[in-house]
């Protein structure tokens, strides 16, 4: 029976019209090249970003009539007052320290809370609690950043900070920093958790079998084993904090000053760019051009951090078996 059926199948199979091999090869080629072309768009994006930033920054540093503005004075100057006074000053340090202050506050909040929550999710929580908490974190991750800015302005500062101390103004680094911390919390948490859960169960079993408590298993085996992913998560989250714009534009204030006092207002690099592009400055003036040099600095900083994260992941990635 099977032999007959196989013969029949072979015969019927021959009835179809043979497709042209040449046409097929041609289409395949066209498709592959189109896909390659679309892939190159992302490379092109990077090239274009760098080109635009370098071009416009060069324009800023070589602008006629402003010979005192050099790369060196820009990177080391401690006064940033492009809009105020008769003699504008372009020393980016106040913007950099403002950015770093907000980022440090955000990290001080989000890193410990995020890591401990990740440990709870990965090591302690039951599957249903875990699912429930993960959805809550997903909601937190999807909230637009402008909402956190609003939250800093209308809740954190007036209801949490100002009752603590009268030195907090409407705009301050602390409120913005905490809001940025809340924003990056889901990133720290979910990426760290992924990395902790990737640690094989067999390692936990091995540690328990030696007489470990849960603390021993978590702190001495699981977290060290997943450390590269955890550190990469921290770096990614801090990169996001540095580049965050809307929160600081709303809540950190608009005064660029060199201070480490979190109750003061600070201006970050991103907030300055918002101020310029919202039209406080004429489009061909030096103030406007300066925003590109600030953007170049910001880009270099975040690029370096993303790079560092990739290296940490690649170099220290744990092969468990």
């Amino acid at each position: 029976m099977t032999a007959v059926a196989a013969r029949n199948a072979a015969e019927i199979s021959q009835r179809g019209r043979l497709r042209h091999v040449g046409i097929r090869q041609c289409t395949e080629g066209i498709i592959e090249w189109s896909l390659w072309g679309l892939t190159m768009l992302s490379v092109l994006t990077t090239v274009a970003i760098i080109a635009v930033l370098v071009w416009e920054s060069t324009g800023f540093f070589t602008m006629a009539g402003h010979d005192d503005v050099t790369v060196w004075s820009f990177l080391t100057g401690t006064t940033w007052s492009p809009l105020l006074g008769a003699e504008p000053a372009f020393g980016i340090l106040p913007l950099v320290t403002g950015t770093l202050l907000v980022t440090a506050i955000a990290g001080a909040f989000a890193i410990p809370v995020g890591l401990l929550t990740a440990v709870y999710l990965s090591e302690y929580a039951s599957p249903s609690t875990r699912g429930w908490l993960k959805s809550a974190l997903e909601i937190l991750a999807g909230v637009p950043t402008v909402v956190y800015g609003f939250f800093a302005l209308t809740f954190i500062t007036p209801y949490l900070l100002q009752p603590l101390s009268e030195s907090f103004g409407t705009y301050n680094a602390m409120g913005a920093g905490i809001a940025v911390g809340i924003m990056i919390l889901p990133i720290v948490c979910s990426l760290s958790e992924d990395s902790l859960r990737a640690v094989p169960q067999s390692l936990r079993d091995g540690a328990y079998a030696l007489g470990s408590t849960k603390f021993d298993v978590t702190a001495k085996v699981v977290v060290p084993a997943g450390l590269s992913g955890v550190i990469a998560a921290f770096l990614l989250a801090l990169t996001r904090a540095i580049g965050e714009t809307m929160i600081v534009a709303l809540a950190a204030g608009g005064l660029a000053q060199l201070t480490a006092n979190p109750s003061q207002q600070v201006q970050t690099m991103t907030a300055y760019m918002v101020q310029i592009f919202l039209g406080d400055a004429p489009a061909n003036g030096i103030e406007y051009r300066s925003s590109y040099a600030v953007a170049m600095t910001l880009f270099a900083l975040t690029f370096a951090m993303t790079w560092a994260g990739a290296i940490v992941l690649k170099r220290y990635r744990e092969e468990y078996e």
């Binding site: 994006t45 580049g243 714009t245 760019m273 880009f299 690029f303």
Partner: peptide, 10 residues
């Protein structure tokens, strides 16, 4: 990892 505002500039 590039801040979104930088995309705005591009």
């Amino acid at each position: 990892g590039v801040p979104s505002i930088v995309y705005g500039i591009l």
